[in-house]
């Protein structure tokens, strides 16, 4: 037996911060593995990659990726990332956070960052609950599901996040699960190369606070569910991809090229001001 002292993506992780905080069976780490593989595949210049997170379990991702990274405030990672992205046109800014952070408290920033087509990639890990605070209901908790704040079952309508961001103007939208690691990695590769606002929803189990409370078994049971209920429909009309019992629509739903915020700004200013326009290049 040889002792394994390193992992192929160790260089991309802050190994001095291991072990991480995620529970056994949690899918956030799996998504991070896919993310590091995507970075590796693209041979990205790590000085030109910045990761920004909000608050929550997925919000801890920024702290484990070995690039310049920021762990900001709850829901506001996108706004911080907007300032960073505009000031670093030669960098890729990635926002990595959870469903509560991005779709609930950060919902307003989500729709406006998508509308502006800010050049950034958003990876939203949806585990149907607020894990960090103990399993409360989120805008993505399924109908009738138990949460600590819906002890008699969820009675609110749920967000169809891909439809929300597509309707808001996102130019790349995909959804995968942490079961579909190869497809997810490929989607990340595409999203990281996409100019403009790219968004990937990653469905993921929270065995500790969502599954146990709802008697859904172990993490592997949800992985089996992801496998069995998956319906891959690339290019699907996002209005039809809401998560329903027994049917999990996955794939690349939107992929189009529109001017990014920076491009729109520069085009407008060049047209209005001509040679008098001096582009904003941050700290150059």
């Amino acid at each position: 037996m040889t002792e394994i002292k390193s992992h192929p993506v160790d260089g991309l992780l802050r190994t001095d911060r291991m072990p991480h905080i995620w529970c056994p069976g949690c899918g956030v780490g799996t998504s991070v593995n896919c993310f590091t593989r995507a970075i590796e595949k693209l041979e990205m210049d790590l000085d030109r990659l910045h990761v920004v997170s909000g608050i929550g379990c997925t919000g801890r991702v920024a702290g484990y990726i070995n690039v310049d990274s920021f762990h900001t405030t709850h829901g506001r990672a996108l706004a911080f990332a907007t300032g960073l992205s505009l000031s670093r046109p030669d960098s890729k800014v990635v926002v990595y956070s959870g469903d509560g952070d991005i779709a609930a408290i950060g919902g307003n920033h989500l729709i406006h960052t998508a509308r502006r087509n800010v050049d950034m990639t958003v990876i939203c890990v949806n585990n149907y609950t607020y894990g960090m605070t103990g399993g409360q209901v989120t805008p993505t908790t399924p109908d009738k599901a138990l949460a600590s704040t819906t002890p008699f079952g969820n009675f609110e309508h749920t967000f169809n996040i891909p439809n929300l961001v597509a309707a808001s103007g996102a130019t790349y939208v995909a959804r995968w699960t942490v079961f579909h690691v190869r497809q997810l990695t490929r989607a990340m590769v595409k999203a990281l190369q996409h100019p403009g606002f790219s968004f990937i929803e990653v469905l993921s189990p929270c065995p500790t606070l969502f599954m146990r409370r709802n008697k859904l078994g172990a993490a592997v049971n949800l992985m089996e569910y992801f496998r069995d209920s998956a319906v891959i429909e690339n290019g699907a009309d996002t209005r039809t991809v809401g998560l329903n019992e027994g049917r999990t629509v996955l794939g690349e739903f939107v992929n189009m090229r529109l001017p990014t915020l920076r491009e729109s700004y520069e085009n407008r200013m060049k047209e209005a001001l001509g040679d008098a326009f001096v582009p904003y290049e941050g700290d150059k």
Binding site: R76, L78, A79, G83, S87
Partner: peptide
């Protein structure tokens, strides 16, 4: 909320 953090992202770029 966004205005008060957006510029902080820019500040960290230098």
């Amino acid at each position: 909320l966004a205005a008060s953090i957006c510029f902080q992202g820019a500040v960290w770029s230098g």
